[in-house]
Design a protein around this nucleic acid. Structure first.
Lengths: 119, 119
DNA sequence: TTGTGTGGTTTATAATAGTAACCTATAGCG
DNA sequence: CGCTATAGGTTACTATTATAAACCACACAA
C-alpha cells in the first residue's frame, strides 16, 4: 500500500508498489461497502433476524437487494442462513465468526458518521 | 439504529426505530465506501498527491473515476484541490481535517482485510 | 373469504461504473 | 522542426448495479 512515484533521469515516471488491481482497502470495501451490506451486517449484530424483519428494519432497501446481499454474505461465510421451520416457512439469518469480525469497523464507522452530522 | 420489531395482540408487525432511509452506517458508507473513494483517501494520507500520480497508484481505476471521486470529496470538504502551478499546469490533492478523520476507519479496514486473506 | 403473515422471484427502468480515445498545453531530444 | 512524453482532465459509448413495484405459493386467523 505504500505507493511511491519515482522519476528517473529522463523525467519518466513509474510507480513502485502500485495497487495493480484492488488493494486491501478496495477489497475490504467490496466485502463490506456495497450498498446495504454494512447495514445488513450491523443489524444482525445482536441476534438472528428473519428475512422480513430485516426488510422492515432497512426501510429503503428492496427485498431483492436484501436477498442478493444475504446470498453474497452467505457465500462468503459471513452470514448463516437457517431454516427454522418448514410448513409455515421461517428463516433466520445470523452472523458467523467472520461476519462478526467486521463489526468493530462498522461500529467505528457509525460513530464517525454520527459525529459529523452527515446530512 | 436499535431497530426492534414488535408484534401486537393481533399478530401485526411493526418496527420501532427502523432505518427509514439510510441510517448512519449507510450514510457513512456512501461517503467512504463508493468504489475507489476509500482507496483515494487512503493514498492521500501522507502528503499532497498530484492527479496523474494518484491515477498511477490506483492502477485499475480510470481517470474519469478518479476525477469524479475527487470532485465529490472536494465538494464534501474532505479533500482540498490546489493549483500549484499554472502554465505547466500542476495540481495537488490533499486531505482536509475532515478527510483525515476518516483515516482510522480505513486503517482498521485495511488491517481486517489483510488479516482475512481475502482473495 | 378477505386480510395478514412468511420468504422470496420477476420484470422493467434508472443510476453508476468502466473503457478507451481524445484534447490543450508544455518540455526535452535529435 | 517533428517526435515523444508529461500534465490534467473531457467525451462518447458500453456494461454493471440498484430500485421500484408486482407478483407467487402457502399458512393462519377472524
Amino acid at each position: 500500500m505504500e505507493s511511491v512515484v519515482k522519476t528517473d533521469s529522463k523525467g519518466r515516471k513509474k510507480v513502485l508498489n502500485a495497487c495493480l488491481e484492488p488493494c486491501a482497502i478496495e477489497k475490504g470495501m467490496r466485502l463490506i461497502g456495497s450498498k446495504w451490506t454494512g447495514s445488513i451486517i450491523y443489524h444482525l449484530k445482536d441476534e438472528p433476524v428473519r428475512f422480513n424483519d430485516l426488510a422492515r428494519m432497512l426501510g429503503g432497501a428492496s427485498k431483492k437487494m436484501i436477498d442478493q446481499r444475504l446470498k453474497e454474505l452467505e457465500a462468503r461465510g459471513m452470514v448463516l442462513r437457517t431454516v427454522v421451520n418448514e410448513r409455515p416457512v421461517a428463516v433466520t439469518y445470523e452472523l458467523t465468526e467472520f461476519g462478526r469480525s467486521a463489526l468493530h469497523i462498522l461500529e467505528q464507522l457509525r460513530v464517525w458518521s454520527e459525529s459529523h452530522q452527515l446530512d
